[in-house]
């Protein structure tokens, strides 16, 4: 479903701030794979997701979605294939538009935006049902401006927006990192449900090793812009935090440098 072939990306090339962010990353996700991504600070996790999303062009390599080469497509033209949820809950929604308007914008991802109504009457009922499932009381506040909601509520809406039109690949970029622990658990549960129900292919970056182990059917670990571990199937199910740390040290020859990650559990 998603195929990343040997991609490289260097930021600020030729300056003192030069940073090799992706150093030959290759990854193939099969249809329905739910892959978690962990790694130290600056390992290239978010950079890899941004490369897939087309935030900027990669230096070399190719990205294929469902067999189609999307490497040359700018961000908004790649959007039809992708659902994205960001770390900052404010980033995925428009604060001064209503909940229902936000959902309607997402429901038209990849469509030509013409002169028919931005929100049709018939959509309202469908959105109400979708929101009711979240059990956050949002279905009765559909005309509320999103800016008035909490971070968790906004993230739940972003998650719904990312999947309201089934994406080929769902990209979750530390989407629970900015939430309080209780809300984070709730949003993660929602993510699991939605991914399973719609049989989505997903990449989820997290700094929480436990979450990385308990969610998804596959786990990759990144270091210095490369994938250094790729665990799936029964190995993934048997994984523990200690085992994972040991594997990391073996694979990278160094201790894991991610203060947030070690504190996370």
């Amino acid at each position: 479903m998603l195929e990343i072939i040997d991609i490289y990306k260097t930021f600020n090339k030729g300056t003192v701030n030069e940073k090799v962010a992706l150093n030959g990353v290759s990854l193939k996700l099969n249809d329905g794979d739910f892959c978690t991504v962990i790694g130290g600070n600056g390992a290239g996790k978010s950079t890899m997701l941004n490369a897939v999303a087309g935030v900027w062009p990669v230096d070399s390599g190719a990205i294929l979605i469902d067999g189609e080469n999307v490497s040359a497509l700018p961000e908004h033209k790649r959007a039809p294939y992708l659902g994205r949820v960001f770390q900052d809950p404010r980033m995925g929604t428009v604060a001064d538009m209503e909940i229902i308007e936000n959902l309607a914008i997402a429901a038209r991802r990849g469509d030509r935006r013409g002169l028919s109504w931005g929100v049709k009457k018939s959509e309202r009922e469908a959105y109400r049902e979708m929101l009711a499932r979240f059990d956050l009381g949002l279905e009765d506040r559909m005309s509320t401006k999103v800016g008035l909601l909490s971070g968790g509520q906004r993230q739940a809406i972003t998650l719904l927006m990312a999947t309201i039109k089934k994406p080929k690949v769902l990209l979750l970029d530390e989407h629970t990192a900015a939430l309080d622990p209780k809300t984070a658990v709730k949003v993660l549960e929602l993510s699991d449900e939605i991914i399973e129900e719609n049989h989505l292919t997903a990449l989820m970056v997290t700094h929480n090793m436990k979450d990385a182990i308990t969610h998804g059917n596959r786990l990759i670990m990144m270091s210095d812009g490369k994938i250094i571990l790729d665990i799936s199937g029964e190995d993934k199910k048997a994984l523990t935090v200690d085992g994972l740390l040991k594997k990391f040290e073996e694979a990278s020859g160094s201790k894991l440098e991610n203060d947030r990650m070690l504190l996370a559990d």
Partner: peptide, 15 residues
């Protein structure tokens, strides 16, 4: 309106 308010979200939604 969404472009004016949140350009990064708008791009992610294919605008």
């Amino acid at each position: 309106r969404s472009t004016g308010s949140n350009p990064s979200m708008s791009k992610a939604q294919g605008i």
